[in-house]
Design a protein around this nucleic acid. Structure first.
Length: 307
DNA sequence: GCGACAG
DNA sequence: ATCTTGTCGC
């Protein structure tokens, strides 16, 4: 057979883990995730040193969104910035906003913001149609393609990706951070605001800033390597609960759930996120990507011509 | 059968 | 994720 095979796109075959095909059964998608997890590396192979990407001063979002510095800055150097960061690692944060027109045709507005040496060096965004609904555990099939679209639109080459959502903290150890990391073969970490699965070693309520505790695989997690022992103490650590932000007196900020996406260990993943947090709950890369996605969304005419 | 679940 | 102003607290 030659030529077009109905429903089969060569690119999609090369990366089946992102086929937003409504015809794919849940079991097929889960099967793809098991294959993908087997390909992932949850260890520090070529991992970054948290100290190399540390950000101490948060970007100011009040005077103009991050895309005010869209693209590469031609010849402009931040005032008094004599540090040479051109060889510092490039950390890229990705996040999405959504459009829900009256006709029900959803679209994702994805944004990618590249940071190097604590400075925003580039912003990019993309609008992508969404063809499958959100299903817990299968988020990557809905939002993976939009994320890749934003990364495609970015000129910078990421040394680390910071994704919104889980990585290894996932039923089949294949959260969206793992999907994207494996596909691009770039180190990645997942940062979620809610715990999908797994069990924190300690209760996470009312913890001081900087606090963290391991999240281990529970009965709902299919771990690749380790046999699940009856005692949960040596169950695989799939991520961490991390209190990135807390107020001195009233403690009610929820922790972040950080997990390896690809080519990073659980320990290094939290260390990196810790280093990337400035004065806010979310690490700078995701905070900026979040702002840029909202901004790009606002710039879209609700009644424009869509495809 | 019941529960439980990123964005 | 999204629909949304003010508001309580540091």
């Amino acid at each position: 057979m030659s030529g077009e095979v109905p429903g089969v796109d060569p690119d999609a075959v090369a990366r089946p883990e992102f086929l937003p095909d409504p015809a794919l059964s849940r079991a097929e998608m889960e099967s793809l995730q098991r294959e993908l997890a087997a390909t992932a590396t949850f260890a520090d192979a070529h991992a970054l040193d948290p100290a190399a990407v540390a950000i101490d001063e948060p970007a100011d979002l009040t005077d103009g969104p991050p895309d005010a510095r869209q693209g590469s800055l031609p010849g402009t150097h931040a005032e008094g910035d004599d540090t040479d960061d051109c060889d510092a690692p490039v950390v890229v944060g990705v996040d999405q906003a959504f459009l829900t027109p009256d006709d029900g045709e959803d679209e994702a507005v994805s944004a990618a913001v590249a940071i190097r040496g604590g400075d925003v060096i580039e912003c990019a965004s993309a609008v992508t149609p969404l063809r499958v609904p959100y299903v817990p555990g299968l988020l990557a099939f809905r939002e993976g393609e939009p994320m890749l679209a934003a990364l495609d639109a970015l000129d910078a080459d990421p040394d680390l990706l910071v994704c919104d959502g889980s990585g290894r903290i996932h039923f089949r150890e294949a959260g969206i951070a793992t999907h994207v990391g494996v596909l691009l073969d770039v180190p990645s970490v997942g940062v979620a605001k809610n715990l999908l699965c797994g069990e924190p070693d300690e209760p996470t309520d009312e913890r001081p800033e900087g606090w963290r505790t391991p999240v281990r695989a529970d009965g709902s997690v299919e771990t690749a390597g380790t046999r699940s022992t009856a005692d949960a103490d040596d169950a695989t650590v799939i991520g961490h609960a991390f209190q990135s932000r807390q107020y001195p007196n009233s403690r009610r900020v929820n922790p972040l759930y950080v997990s390896p996406g690809h080519r990073v260990s659980a320990e290094t993943a939290v260390g990196l996120v810790d280093a990337l947090c400035a004065r806010y709950k979310l690490p700078e890369p995701t905070r900026l990507a979040d702002a840029h996605a909202d901004d790009a969304k606002r710039g879209i005419d609700p009644k424009r011509e869509r495809d």
